[in-house]
Design a protein around this nucleic acid. Structure first.
Lengths: 155, 155
DNA sequence: CGGCATCGCTATGAATTTCATAGTCGACTC
DNA sequence: GAGTCGACTATGAAATTCATAGCGATGCCG
């Protein structure tokens, strides 16, 4: 199977991976969540080559994660804004950040902290069950076929 | 900048992306969280070629996400188990699943549902602030330098 | 014992993707 | 009118990934 067939699997995780399971795509979403909107901005903040920036932005536009607006026609200037779909990747990025803080930071502690403006504390992002509010842990969750299941492909 | 220098950035998200920001790596973690442990199992469930399976398992072992155990010496049989570090990717995978359910499932609904055994309901994974318990949303969180910050690289 | 299957890989060359460098085009700016 | 900036495109080289094939050890079946 080729990498680009991953999204054909009957699994939301595989489908999500097919769209954002790419280092540059994730970096671009991260930058956009941090406020970046311009071509050159993505180029500078991620360090990617312009050809890579061009390609990824196209893919992310196609996927519906970014929208392009021309905010000036003289001179022609574009900005790339996250759609609702793109903004909804925020929890994914926060979960990645949390994992990196815990496992990849070393003794010095995390390089950046995220402050939850609502309560004023550090945002310690944890994933909880939407029904009971308890943290979701490996082992407390089981898998079943859902309404969108159509085949016997359990993966 | 090359893709493999992403992890050098002073940012937990970038570091996490450098380790698991790869379609196959994420798929392998997903399968492992679902209980897969064997070489051929990863090959079948993900559809990846053996050379890719070999390479990814090596990288994930190096990264400390998997551990290898020989659970039988006659015949020689290996199993690949998630470490604590690997299990801690569970929230990331659940966040991806949630995003895929919401944005990539189409009208039929999600192909798989995850049940929270503790409360018996569907696990609607949401990311909340560890301090106040309110959902973390794009816009309610700001970034500051943390204890591990050493340079003026804000990325 | 011979033949076949399974597990856990490795080898190889072709196809694809990514990288680095360079260049283009329009507009603005000094 | 020379330089610069934003937003890209072009190109060939380098690196990665893919598909196919095969290997060595073991077990199973008759």
């Amino acid at each position: 199977m080729r990498r680009d067939s991953i999204g054909a699997k009957e699994c939301s995780i595989a489908r999500a991976i097919a769209v954002v399971g790419d280092p540059w795509a994730l970096m671009f979403v991260r930058e956009a969540l941090a406020g970046e909107t311009r071509f050159v901005g993505f180029q500078n903040s991620t360090g990617a080559q312009p050809s890579v920036v061009s390609d990824r932005l196209k893919r992310l536009l196609d996927a519906g994660i970014f929208e392009r607006h021309e905010y000036s026609s003289h001179p022609p200037r574009q900005e790339y804004r996250l759609t609702k779909m793109g903004e909804d990747l925020f929890p994914v990025v926060m979960a990645l950040n949390r994992w990196g803080d815990v496992h990849l930071s070393g003794d010095a502690g995390p390089p950046l902290v995220y402050r939850h403006e609502t309560c004023g504390h550090d945002a310690d992002p944890i994933v909880v069950c939407g029904h009971c509010g308890d943290p979701l842990t490996f082992g407390s969750v089981t898998v079943e076929p859902g309404p969108g299941a159509t085949s016997n492909d359990p993966g």
